[in-house]
Design a protein around this nucleic acid. Sequence first.
DNA 1: TATTGTTATACTCTATAACTATA
DNA 2: TATAGTTATAGAGTATAACAATA
Lengths: 162, 162
Amino acid sequence: MHNSIIPMGMDRLDPPDNRLHDPVASHLGYLLRRASAAVMAALGARLAAIGMRPVEGTILILVGANPGCIQSDVGRMLGIKRANMVPLIAALANKGLIDKSPVDGRSLALSLTAAGEAARARVEAIMAAQEAQVERMLAGQDVLLLRQALCRIVDGDEIGAT
Amino acid sequence: MHNSIIPMGMDRLDPPDNRLHDPVASHLGYLLRRASAAVMAALGARLAAIGMRPVEGTILILVGANPGCIQSDVGRMLGIKRANMVPLIAALANKGLIDKSPVDGRSLALSLTAAGEAARARVEAIMAAQEAQVERMLAGQDVLLLRQALCRIVDGDEIGAT
DNA sequence: TATTGTTATACTCTATAACTATA
DNA sequence: TATAGTTATAGAGTATAACAATA
């Protein structure tokens, strides 16, 4: 919390930032954004070790838990538009992790290949470790209540209107 | 929380998503990311009413609180790289909201113009309303503790290493 | 008529490398 | 040698519009 109130023009020029006073550092919206970025960066670094990005890992887990689900539903669940799902699913299929089989004539049923299931297991282990660390850093919180509150914001028809 | 455990292949095809089971919906990292996106989208919509984006508003507030600060310090404080600060500051200067005056020969001192100060006040009012709403949606939390925890994650040298 | 998958496209945000001028 | 500002550029992520095939 770089919130020291040292006026500009002083002689302390040594530290990384110039000890700016930051009135937004206490805003929960801002902190949410920065914390999210930090957590995603850390997860990205861990998943990169197995050649995977956070989105891809999440899709693997979701398809693994819902074999036969269709592309559009996965996108809706993750808040990803149809058009943007195409290259994501194509990449996972090209890596041989996901099978696409037509069910409908217009819908594609998704399922994990054997390699996809193995990858999913590795992803889940990494994400579980990440999750444990995040929970540890949220020490002092009622994590159950926090989860519920974040869900309210995510599904938030409450936010956006005044 | 779309977490109902209704197996695929049922006849309930009416709701938006096909009632997928979502094992990642409970992950704090994932919730953090989705909640952050929702809050930022709401803030973006509100600020768009005065022709401003969240980053620009944040910079106005930061410069207003630290007149004479230099571009690089603002970037460091907000986690924005030097190279990416250039067009941001240029845009605010072009709008006549920020003045740049050389102090160093290599550094530029930033300050708000009269119009910039007026814009800053409007931004701060909007952000305060947004912040109040976020706090309301986090009902049941110890907001002070939550702020501290999020700051730990943001400044997190703890996260990223195993 | 609404939905699925798809293509093309554009805009924002972010990251890196390289350069100049200055401290 | 390190820092400030700058340019150019590349990669994600996200958004819209349009189209064909299907329900």
